[in-house]
Design a protein around this nucleic acid. Structure first.
Lengths: 121, 121, 121, 121
DNA sequence: GTGGTCTAGACCACG
DNA sequence: GTGGTCTAGACCACT
């Protein structure tokens, strides 16, 4: 489980971590009931504060990605496989709706955007 | 020249203004040397602080969208028409590169992304 | 706006604060768009850490009770009056369902519970 | 003697056990001097740590629900039948006083609460 | 060992 | 002035 954080990013550290872990979960890279490393362990490895990791873990739990067993640790929540691919699609579509709005604002047609995609891919 | 801001948006107000004006400029909606309304006027209309407008104007000047004539006001910088469409393309492509990275992270292929575009458009 | 916290309570401080403020809001004691006191002010008055107040404010925002204006402060969210009484009823009923389960476990009938209510009121 | 525990519950495991056993005792489901199963047995069945069961047993002993005979095991304390029903009433009333306080805080009258009871029962 | 709460103090972004 | 983020370190509860 590799996590990479950049202190110069515009996004707060806890969110970078949240984004990466939630992505791994919806992509099935972390299996159901997988035990996440202890927050102190992650903190030491990434050389950032325990609090910051905890914050990321909290948001993941609140959004149903993981659950906590008192005194045991944090685990990947049970997701039905179809639910996961649904979630992936929802996340992608939500972002795309915003993105398309931006490109439209610049005067691009659907074809223009598709050209851009091919160019950028 | 209509500007709309929301004080509860996740984006800071000065950036909302920056985004809208820069968009109008690259889309040719504001012609070369067009005189922007006075800072105090905009501040009064939008009912926000002069400092906030000033900040947006500053960033627009820093990025070459506008220039200031002391004691006269702020004006849209001179852009050759082809330069404008170049700029539009550059902005769009820069964003698309980031966006595509995200969609790839979710496991989507170029075709998947194009499907998404059509769906969202 | 009076808040009372007890450091000996079984509930964490931030939750005591959350409970009291959310109660005031659903009871209409704090009007829509009311500006909450600054977290530093509350922290000083209650003689507890800014962080703890912030935590309470965060949960209130996440649950839609308040909203934040960058650089301005936190405000009571707009609630339609009927929505408020609905929310009150929902909160009360949710708790009662749990409570009744407990009393049933002790072997009490509905009449027994009602007697208890009268006695305790 | 069935005990059910959830490791993800908001209540600590030892307390879930305490609650269930104390309830069985005051309800007369476990007779006086009934010999509780050995700590290790319970631990194995519930697949939780011996320490956790021990903690529950300790609190039950502290509160006079059970007593320990060294080398023999733990037994349900002797309760006169009327004492048991008194205890049940005391427990119920103590909780109800707290509950009523909450409902009053939401602006409910005694009648409102009684309505709620009927609805929830 | 695990996570949950709280502290005191710092720095930054926004208005 | 406001809130948002982060730090380092402490203490507690649970297993």
């Amino acid at each position: 489980m590799n996590i990479v954080v950049s202190s110069t990013s515009e996004l707060p550290i806890y969110q970078q971590i949240y984004d990466q872990i939630s992505r791994m979960i919806v992509c099935g890279e972390l299996p159901n009931n997988y035990c996440l490393p202890a927050i102190r362990t992650v903190a030491k490895e990434l050389r950032i504060s325990v609090i910051t990791i905890k914050r990321a873990w909290e948001e993941l739990e609140r959004d149903g990605f993981i659950y906590t067993k008192a005194g045991k640790g944090c685990f990947v929540a049970n997701h039905a496989p179809e639910k996961l691919s649904d979630k992936r699609e929802t996340m992608a579509l939500e972002k795309m709706v915003k993105d398309v709005e931006y490109y439209k604002g610049l005067g691009l047609s659907a074809e223009d955007i598709i050209e851009l995609v091919k160019e950028a891919y």
